[in-house]
């Protein structure tokens, strides 16, 4: 019953916090990019948008960081990346890296 106590304790802890994270938070955040980058990061071929599915997390995070800092020139991504926290960008990168 130790296990049950532990699970219940985790749940209680999670629900006590104002920001108990949704288990699908990464999926939900990544979906905000899909309008341009395709459902689950699979962009329409020939549409001129980057596919993100299956890219390595390190590469995705570096790109996002470079957009955010302004190191990588962009027409729009420098403005969009600033709207997400680094933690959110990390969850987004995790999600897309895991897509096949």
């Amino acid at each position: 019953m130790k296990r049950l106590t532990a699970i219940a304790a985790v749940c209680l802890l999670a629900s006590a916090g104002a920001h108990a994270a949704d288990p699908n938070l990464g999926r939900n955040l990544a979906a905000t990019c899909a309008n341009c980058h395709g459902t689950n990061g699979k962009a329409v071929p020939g549409g001129g948008m980057d596919s993100l599915a299956g890219e390595s997390k390190a590469k995705l995070l570096q790109k996002l960081a470079d957009f955010k800092s302004g190191d990588k020139p962009a027409s729009i991504m420098h403005q969009i990346t600033k709207g997400y926290t680094d933690e959110q960008l990390s969850l987004i990168a995790d999600y897309y890296a895991a897509q096949k």
Binding site: C36, H37, M49, S75, Q79, I80
Partner: peptide, 22 residues
């Protein structure tokens, strides 16, 4: 965060069609 284009251009015209298709 967010904002508008620096200036009108053809690259954004292509992006607009890419946006629509996606």
């Amino acid at each position: 965060a967010g904002g508008v284009s620096a200036a009108r251009n053809e690259l954004e015209g292509k992006a607009a069609m890419g946006w629509a298709k996606n």
